[in-house]
Design a protein around this nucleic acid. Structure first.
Lengths: 158, 158
DNA sequence: ACTGAAATCGCGTCAAC
DNA sequence: GTTGACGCGATTTCAGT
């Protein structure tokens, strides 16, 4: 967890694994100029320390019929502040809601959502999110173009 | 690319791979009740069709010293519309800028950015983003809590 | 044509130096 | 930190349906 113990080789490993999470240990070892067992020990240590939180396949939304991405800002009614955790749980339970952040600024929450089309998005926002008691001011920003796709975290040592 | 050819087993495979991108082929085969070669062929087909776009290690921002996440909305000055692609390239080149979307609504772009602390974030916004010619109205929403972390795309067949 | 059994080869992984 | 060894898994081939 502490960066104190992340040296340049750890950083290089993280950079490679963020690019190709399925690289073989021997190829990774070669890329970072380490012997395979050494490299393996480093990777396991990074996993155990929680620096590497897991590995995910990146799936294309459109291939799954999810053509629409939107960011949705949500406010909570003043009278509902004691039920925020319950509201959060309800939001979290929607599979279309991929991310939920509480944020500073004009709105309380910012959500990233996907939907198959605009009709589905509208139905999700109007008939489901807005029906949650305590939610007000649902505003959506539909993504028109992906100028930079979700990218790797910058690693200082490079 | 077409969902027409995604049957229930493909969906199950995608679901598992989004959860554990490094699962071994034999374990994956067992989970979806397929023989190993069959499962292997399915996965390769999904990769070749672009349904699976790659595999990524998930790295913890805080362990890298990146404690702050923010969403930043950006507008382009009317006079600069012919230079949008150049502005986009400049935005894309910041390693702290993880995602860029063009969006409908009040702002032209929505960015997801990371920084080591608020000082770094402020410096990034004021001294670097706002210095780009043609950019106006930089507004930031600092993430306070991650209520739902970036999650798997919902797969219909489940 | 598609499935699964078998066979090979390379890698992950551990133990000893 | 490196070398070597062992066993398992990935990947291909091939025969059967």
């Amino acid at each position: 967890m502490e960066l104190s113990k992340l040296d340049a080789i750890d950083c290089k490993i993280l950079e490679v694994l963020q690019r190709d999470g399925r690289i073989s240990n021997v190829d990774l070892a070669a890329e970072v100029h380490l012997s395979a067992p050494q490299c393996f020990r480093r990777v396991r240590a990074l996993e155990e320390r929680g620096v590497v939180r897991g590995y995910r396949a990146l799936v294309s939304g459109p291939s799954l019929g999810l053509a629409v991405t939107a960011f949705v800002s949500v406010n909570i009614e003043g009278a509902a502040f004691e039920r925020v955790r319950d509201i959060e749980r309800q939001l979290r339970d929607f599979p279309e809601v991929l991310e939920i952040h509480t944020v500073s600024g004009d709105s309380d929450y910012l959500l990233k959502v996907v939907a198959s089309d605009l009709r589905h998005l509208g139905q999700l926002l109007t008939d489901r999110l807005m029906q949650i008691k305590g939610i007000a001011d649902v505003r959506s920003m539909v993504c028109l173009e992906e100028v930079k796709p979700p990218s790797a975290l910058p690693v200082s040592g490079t």
